[in-house]
Amino acid sequence: MERKIRVLIAKPGLDGHDRGAKVVARALRDAGFEVIYTGLHQTPEQIVSTAVQEDVDAIGLSCLSGAHMTLFPRVVELLRERGADDIIVSGGGIVPEEDVPKLKTAGIAAVFGPGTPLKDIVEFHKKALRKR
């Protein structure tokens, strides 16, 4: 039995900058992960519902619009409501330094800002296996 790690890469909110999300998706693919990519303009409800149907181990959120303080914690909250809060959630995009501790308190396991080596993101997700 080989346990494959599945990661959902999602873009909540209204910005159209998906370059970063695609680069991360590609890096995870090349590291042997199954990456589910949902495209732009996703609501937190869509993201969580997708994560449940796809039974992912982790969710990577990318937001460059500045709405991360609303959208990222909302995803964690909805996961909790669905009983799926063992899914590890990380975030990336333009997130000011002072927001990072607040996001971590809200349940975002890691924040990957601009310039983060792809290797770090890959290593982070290698440990993201959910208990079955």
């Binding site: 494959k4 998706a25 590609r26 995870l28 693919r29 090349d30 590291a31 042997g32 992960f33 199954e34 990456v35 589910i36 990519y37 949902t38 495209g39 996703q42 609501t43 409800e45 869509q46 519902s49 997708t50 149907q53 796809e54």
Partner: peptide, 25 residues
């Protein structure tokens, strides 16, 4: 690498919160 990008559901996301639809990649 054994990795994959599963992107078919991008086109179907309008149904993602409908409890009468189950999509799996």
């Amino acid at each position: 690498t054994g990795g994959a990008i599963l992107g078919d559901r991008i086109r179907m996301q309008q149904h993602s919160t409908d409890p009468g639809v189950f999509i799996r990649s």
